[in-house]
């Protein structure tokens, strides 16, 4: 029996070999990829903390954002952060796969960003606001005038309450008048959709 150099079966065998080796290479790649997927995972507390606004205002009832993030991971509800507003709740809900719920009014309501400003003439230099500020953004000495470093202020509101002469105001920051593109009007953004759903 003579064997032809190229016949149907040899072509088929070649193609099979090609196909199989491709499959093996692909399989290896997928395996490597899957392994890599496993490695990088940040801790959940970190990721929750990342989503919180870091104003450190304590309106949630915890001393700072990180403690609240820890409690969220232990099952605390996610709707206690007024400065974060709906957007933060939605993001948290997505991250933790929980149902979003409206902001808990017991903890305050969402306000647009404002920074504290001391009416300096009225300041009596009691240092109470300095002690209240969670991020050391107020400078001044005992019996001397105090002032808020506007650039550093997180707008947490915590200094307003302790001031004995009520000389601290929260002022909305005027943003520079730049042109902003809006999403074309036919669209309802996800958050507004959620707002109406809530």
């Amino acid at each position: 029996m003579t064997y032809p150099l190229v016949d149907w079966v040899s072509i088929q065998a070649l193609l099979w070999l090609l196909g199989l080796s491709t499959l093996i290479v692909l399989g290896l790649k997928i395996w490597r990829w899957l392994r890599q997927q496993r490695v990088q995972q940040r801790s959940v507390v970190d990721r929750v903390n990342y989503l919180l606004p870091q104003t450190q205002c304590g309106q949630c009832g915890y001393p700072g954002c990180l403690p609240y993030a820890r409690e969220i991971c232990r099952g605390e509800s996610i709707n206690k952060c007024p400065p974060g507003g709906t957007e933060t709740i939605v993001r948290l809900a997505k991250l933790l796969n929980r149902a979003p719920s409206p902001l808990n009014p017991a903890h305050g309501e969402f306000k647009s960003f404002a920074v504290a400003a001391i009416r300096e003439a009225e300041c009596v230099g009691c240092t109470k606001c300095i002690q209240a500020c969670p991020i050391d953004a107020i400078i001044g000495g005992s019996k001397l005038m105090h002032t808020v470093i506007e650039k550093e202020c997180s707008g947490c509101d915590l200094c307003v309450e302790p001031c004995p002469v009520d000389c601290i105001d929260m002022l909305a920051i005027s943003s520079p008048a730049t042109f902003e593109w809006t999403l074309p009007s036919t669209v309802i953004g996800a958050y507004s959709k959620l707002d109406s759903a809530l």
Binding site: W33, Q36, Q40
Partner: peptide, 11 residues
Amino acid sequence: GHQRAPLLGEK
């Protein structure tokens, strides 16, 4: 301008 597609390679 990117090195490579994220095709089942590194993240």
